[in-house]
Simulated assay, not measured.
Amino acid sequence: MSLEGEALAWVVPQRLAGEADAALGALQIGLARPARGRIVLRAAGAERAVREGRLLPERRLRLPLPPAGIDATVALEET
């Protein structure tokens, strides 16, 4: 899992492997500072999920998990 965007601080889980059920039901994303824009989950060259709006560091953002074994990127596109 890779991050693109200076305001993104962390994402868990950081790696998805195997066919077993994931311990977490969604990606949890944290910000280092307030931001406005879109958080986009990209996997296998396609947008899988998008969350838009005013984003705050105190709140965990959740996006659906990408399929296991596929390189994914979480990107913040600020407006």
Rank of each mutant, 00 (worst) to 15 (best):
A35D: 12
A23Y: 12
I39P: 04
L63V: 08
E52R: 08
A32G: 13
R60Y: 09
A72R: 01
L3V: 02
G53Y: 14
P64C: 12
L16N: 15
L8N: 01
G5P: 04
L41I: 06
R15L: 04
R36K: 11
E4G: 09
R48L: 04
W10L: 00
A26T: 07
P67C: 06
L3I: 06
A23Q: 15
L41V: 05
R42V: 02
A9V: 02
G18A: 15
A7R: 08
A46P: 14
I39T: 08
Q14A: 14
R48K: 08
G53F: 09
E58I: 11
L61D: 01
L76Q: 03
A68R: 07
G5K: 01
P67G: 06
V40T: 04
P67E: 05
P64N: 07
R59A: 11
P64K: 03
A44R: 10
G69H: 07
L16V: 10
V11C: 03
V50K: 03
G69T: 05
A68V: 06
R38W: 06
V40A: 01
R15V: 01
L24S: 14
L8T: 01
E19S: 11
V50D: 05
R36D: 09
G25T: 11
L24W: 13
I70V: 09
I29N: 08
E77D: 02
V11S: 02
E47L: 07
W10A: 02
P57E: 00
A49W: 06
G25D: 14
V74D: 03
L76I: 04
A43I: 03
L56D: 09
E52C: 08
A22H: 14
P34D: 12
G45R: 04
A32T: 06
A43E: 05
V12I: 14
L56G: 14
E77H: 02
P66T: 00
A46H: 14
P57R: 04
A35P: 10
R54G: 10
A7I: 12
A32I: 03
L16M: 13
E19Y: 14
E6P: 13
P13N: 14
L56M: 10
T79G: 08
D21F: 13
A17H: 13
A72N: 04
R54E: 07
L27H: 15
A17K: 09
G37H: 03
R38Q: 10
R15Q: 09
E58T: 12
G25V: 15
G5W: 00
E47D: 10
V40Q: 10
V50G: 15
L65S: 04
E4P: 12
G5E: 03
L65Y: 01
A35Q: 09
G69W: 05
R42S: 02
E47Q: 10
E78Y: 05
I29A: 15
A35Y: 12
A7Q: 11
R48T: 07
A68I: 07
L3N: 01
S2D: 08
S2A: 10
E52Y: 00
A22D: 12
R54N: 12
